[in-house]
């Protein structure tokens, strides 16, 4: 896994600092950019469709480490994959986003997973399945159970979010960080690579602060 390990300084003493590259993948108009925008700026607005790629950065000052996220947002339209795949090379985490009110985007997320599985070993990347737009619950086409079940069989993190009403957006990124940090620790204690295990999402109570 690629990251910087340097000694961060804080009142509590030196903490490791990590940099992780996260990519947002999913169909058109499922809310990839909105999730990033909500997470980084804590705001929701009508965004232009992503043409090509865009990126955001976010630094998390956690008790155990300083984590810098480089969030790469990709265009949903398939045409753009040929120019975007350069950007998800080497990612340490991926959010596979679908729209809970659009079944097709869920199927597409599954295809995205296949694509990722071709490129990465499970130990190389943390993948979270994200059902966005819970504010559209009335038009729901994908049940929470469906998402949950699929995530479980594939060993993915799972969460339903709403960038619009700010539901669990922070949580999903936190869950990813926790999993990444857990793997760091595991790697430090045991040098051999191993499979993924699920993380208890409710335990992600670490305090975060934006820089």
């Amino acid at each position: 896994m690629a990251q910087t390990v340097t000694s961060g300084t804080s009142p509590e003493g030196p903490r490791p600092s990590y940099m992780y590259k996260v990519v947002l993948l999913g169909s058109m108009s499922v809310g990839k950019s909105s999730l990033a925008y909500r997470y980084v700026r804590n705001d929701f607005r009508e965004l232009l469709p992503t043409v090509g790629c865009s990126f955001f950065t976010q630094t998390l000052d956690l008790d155990e480490a300083v984590v810098k996220f480089e969030i790469w947002d990709t265009a949903g339209q398939e045409k753009y994959q040929s120019v975007c795949h350069l950007y998800y090379r080497d990612a340490q985490a991926a959010l596979l986003v679908y729209d809970i009110a659009n079944k097709q985007t869920f199927s597409r997320a599954k295809l995205w997973l296949e694509e990722l599985e071709k490129r990465f070993l499970p130990s190389e990347i943390v993948i979270a399945l994200v059902g966005n737009k819970t504010d559209l619950a009335a038009e729901r086409e994908v049940t929470t159970e469906e998402g949950e079940e699929f995530a479980q069989t594939k060993g993915l993190l799972f969460m339903e979010t709403s960038a619009k009403s700010n539901h669990q957006v922070n949580d999903v990124f936190m869950a990813v960080v926790q999993e990444l940090l857990r793997r760091e620790k595991e790697k430090a204690s045991k040098p051999s690579p191993h499979g993924r295990s699920t993380v208890n999402l409710s335990a992600s109570g670490a305090r975060t602060r934006c820089c």
Binding site: A2, C53, V83
Partner: peptide, 25 residues
């Protein structure tokens, strides 16, 4: 810094958008 990772050419992400929307964004 990223341990032999891959950072795309820095201008790419911007230039691509400029070209695709002919600077409209």
């Amino acid at each position: 810094e990223s341990g032999g990772g891959y950072e795309p050419p820095l201008t790419n992400v911007f230039t691509m958008q400029w070209f695709l929307t002919l600077f409209a964004t």
